[in-house]
Design a protein around this nucleic acid. Structure first.
Length: 499
DNA sequence: TCTATTCTGTGCCTTGTCGC
DNA sequence: GCGACAAGGCACAGAATAGA
């Protein structure tokens, strides 16, 4: 077995390759709305694709509908059929406007454009079947297909191709076809001729390996034009309808299904990133990459695209500042560190107040520190549930918190007293000279007299004068000595009447 | 217990090779 | 040129497992 040949790659340097136009003219309605299935399996299971939405037009709320129905015999248009259609668009793009029916083409040419073996009879058959399947798929539009020519949303049932006549078959005028002829439907043809087109890089489209990536490229290319190059957000549900892909029940599956396509588009710089937001309805935010911006710039300069992009009042451009606040980000980071999944952490942060989140995180931390059995088996699960149900803190937690609070209060009082004490002492140092020396030693002198008297050594007036002089001589001279001296007067513990 | 994620298998398609 | 066949890829579904 040789290496599997990848899907046609514009970078392949093969001989006999037909010149591929850089840009092809893709009709906007068919870029915006779903038509082809994106997987073989899906196309074999699918009989219909329905895009339904409630929107407001002219002040009225209306239901719009786009349905693609497979022919029972030929089946639903497949991803390969989509590539064949893109090759048809490529052929059309080489023709000048106005485009007229029928479009003559060769299957050889299509095979070359698809970069598949043009000599294989089987490939010829596949291309033929693709064109037949596409022409048999029925479309119903109720306010979804926009006719730029008529400036209105149409209500009609039609096909993408009205008729396909292969070489040797009879043409509508009775003559025998000498080439293959494709008759485009009226609405499609009118739309192309009224320049309701989105130029797409065909080489880039072919280079995308994932069918979903290819579909996202054309869809987002249009939407980025609508947002003026700003990020574009879309609900997952809606995206599933417009691609179309099977809608998943779980977020992880949804992410998994789109992951490879997103990675490919990021790798090829069409988008810089695709961000999933769980709230409100699994929203995906697509940020245009270098390639998308370049295309946008090119379309603007050429003034090629004048479209009415909005088919609904759904998600539009969003500003970049959808990012979370610093507080929320810190909380989310904290929750993730504690073992909660990122998506859940974001959901919790969005649903509950910062106070509640912080309170429960504090209780959780306390439980962990105290090796509580509550957080032994499934700590992250406990934390999530405690936030969701706003658990009351345990009694021990409250008791300890009260005790800590009391201790803290005592410490704060002590600190405030020490500051007050220092202030009082410094004030007294400053006012030192306002008090006489006799007054300063009065207390000590009296204390000495009482002590001597109690010991039956009642001092004489001469002895008192000597002691008085001695005490005055001992009084401090410098400010520092005065501060030290006065410190003895004020205890370090706050007095009972303090505050 | 419910929800989400991961793993694995299935069905279908594409591609290349080989032989008639 | 054509058919048969094998290998690999892809989207998807369901079972098993982990997490909340």
């Amino acid at each position: 077995m040789t290496q599997k040949k990848s899907l046609p790659d514009s970078t392949d340097d093969k001989e006999e390759k037909l010149p591929i136009p850089t840009f092809i003219k893709s009709e906007v309605n068919f870029v915006r709305l779903p038509f082809f299935a994106l997987s073989r399996k899906d196309s074999s299971n699918r009989t219909e694709t329905e895009y339904r939405e409630s929107t407001e037009r002219d002040g009225k709320r209306i239901e719009i509908l786009w349905t693609v129905t497979a022919n029972a015999k030929f089946g639903y248009p497949t991803p390969f059929d989509k590539k064949v259609h893109k090759a048809i668009e490529s052929i059309i793009s080489r023709k000048g406007l106005p485009i007229k029916n029928p479009i003559d083409f060769s299957i050889y040419e299509i095979c070359k454009l698809l970069n598949i073996d043009a000599d294989s009879g089987r490939n010829y058959e596949m291309v033929k079947n693709a064109l037949i399947r596409t022409s048999f798929a029925g479309i119903q539009s109720k306010g979804t297909f926009y006719s730029k020519n008529d400036k209105r949303w149409i209500e009609d049932a039609f096909h993408l191709y009205d008729r396909i006549v292969f070489i040797g078959e009879t043409l509508p005028d009775g003559s025998i076809a000498e080439s293959n002829y494709l008759f485009l439907s009226d609405w499609y043809l009118k739309s192309l001729n009224s320049f309701y087109i989105k130029p797409l890089d065909y080489g880039f489209f072919l280079s995308l390996k994932s069918n979903i990536a290819g579909r996202l490229y054309e869809f987002l290319s249009l939407q980025f034009y609508g947002t003026g190059g700003k990020p574009y957000s879309i609900d997952y549900h809606k995206l599933c309808q417009v691609l179309p892909i099977v809608e998943q029940k779980y977020l992880s599956k949804a992410i998994q299904n789109l992951e490879s396509a997103h990675e490919e588009l990021i790798k090829k710089n069409f988008i810089s990133k695709a961000e999933w937001c769980e709230k409100p309805n699994w929203t995906i935010v697509y940020y245009p990459g270098k390639k998308a911006k370049e295309e946008l710039k090119s379309a603007e300069t050429e003034n090629q695209l004048k479209v009415e992009l909005s088919i609904s009042d759904g998600k539009q451009a969003i500003d970049s500042e959808i990012e979370l606040s610093q507080d929320k980000s810190e909380i989310i980071e904290n929750l993730i560190q504690k073992g909660i999944a990122k998506t859940t952490a974001i959901r919790l942060a969005n649903n509950y107040s910062d106070d509640r989140l912080r309170r429960q995180i504090n209780i959780f931390d306390w439980l962990v520190r105290n090796k509580s059995p509550l957080v032994e088996k499934n700590p992250a699960g406990f934390l999530r549930k405690s936030i969701e149900e706003d658990y009351q803190p345990p009694k021990e937690y409250l008791d300890q918190r009260d005790k800590e609070a009391k201790e803290q209060k005592g410490k704060d009082r002590q600190e405030r007293w020490l500051k007050r004490r220092e202030k009082l002492i410094r004030q007294e140092v400053a006012n030192w000279d306002q008090v006489s020396l006799e007054e300063r030693i009065k207390g000590r002198l009296n204390f000495w007299i009482i002590s001597e008297t109690m010991n039956n050594r009642t001092p004489t007036s001469e002895q008192i004068e000597i002691k008085k002089k001695e005490l005055i001589d001992c009084l401090p001279k410098t400010d520092d000595e005065k501060f030290e001296y006065l410190s003895q007067k004020y205890l370090e513990l706050p007095p009972d009447d303090f505050e």
